[in-house]
Simulated scan of single mutants.
Amino acid sequence: MSVHEKMNSETKQAIKHALISQIEMVGFERVTVKELALTAKINRGTFYLHYTDKFAVMEDIQQELLHHLAECVQKIRLLDATHTIQAGQLYPPFVEVIHYIKEQATFFRVLLGEQGSPVFSIGVKNIFSEQILQNLIMIQADKLDMEFSKYLRAFISSAVLGVIQEWLANGNEQLSVEKLSMIHFRLMKFLGEMWSYN
């Protein structure tokens, strides 16, 4: 990466962080380009070299987060996860997902919170539900009708999103990636035992 590219990248990151900071303080609707530039310590002309408006910044943030999240989630295989959990171990691909969310915790917390973006929440759920669907088709396509599969996807993706939102809302600094992974492991094990009991 050239010096110019590095400076451009750093400026864009400063603008993204400024937007998240402003959303936390005043909400997205009240964010202005003037305040974004001030917060990012750039002038308005520099802002417009990178983005047309605050909506473009928001779109860039969401696309980047969803792209990297999808890359992590695509490594999850439900069958492998089940075997790993049954063996009493944490499932590494899910730990990787949590690691990524932890790295970008401020962005995820704001975008998934009350001041955030419903579109982003739907995007996160879609990433999980799409991967779940592919896994279900591979595992037992002959046993699941389409209607049940649809609701099972919604149930699992909402549950995963709910755990992540709870973690972020309650301060992910107090609960490490490993501890959240262990809670996820216990939840999956608990549900598995409950279903097998019935």
Rank of each mutant, 00 (worst) to 15 (best):
G123T: 01
I139W: 11
D80K: 11
I76V: 13
E29L: 00
S176R: 03
V163A: 15
C72F: 11
F155Q: 13
N198S: 11
K150Y: 15
L111I: 08
E96K: 07
I183C: 12
F185G: 01
Q63I: 08
F55H: 13
E10C: 07
E96C: 09
Q134H: 11
L191A: 08
G27H: 06
N135F: 01
I76R: 00
R153Q: 15
K125M: 12
S121E: 15
H4F: 09
F185D: 02
N172E: 14
R77M: 08
H68C: 08
E193M: 13
G192C: 06
V119L: 15
E71K: 09
Q89M: 13
V163N: 01
F190E: 08
Q140W: 10
E5G: 07
E130C: 03
H68S: 09
N198A: 13
M146N: 08
E130M: 08
G162I: 01
A14I: 01
W195I: 11
F28C: 03
E130N: 13
T84N: 00
I85C: 05
R153P: 02
G123P: 02
M138N: 10
G113S: 14
E64F: 12
V95M: 05
E173T: 07
R44N: 10
I85E: 02
E166F: 05
Q174V: 12
P92S: 02
Q74K: 11
Q174E: 13
A70R: 12
N43W: 04
Q86W: 05
E29V: 07
E173V: 15
T46Q: 05
I20C: 00
S117A: 14
A159G: 15
M25D: 15
C72L: 07
L133I: 04
A81R: 06
E29Q: 14
V97L: 06
I85V: 13
R44F: 00
F190I: 02
A169W: 04
L136R: 01
V97G: 01
Q134Y: 04
L66Y: 02
H99E: 11
E193L: 15
M7H: 14
T106P: 06
G171R: 00
I98H: 03
W195N: 06
Q131C: 13
G88V: 03
N43T: 09
N170I: 04
Q89L: 11
Y48D: 01
D80F: 02
T39Y: 03
L152D: 03
T82P: 00
L78A: 06
V26L: 11
A37Y: 06
Y51W: 09
T52R: 15
L133E: 15
L161V: 06
L191V: 12
M58E: 14
F55G: 07
G45E: 08
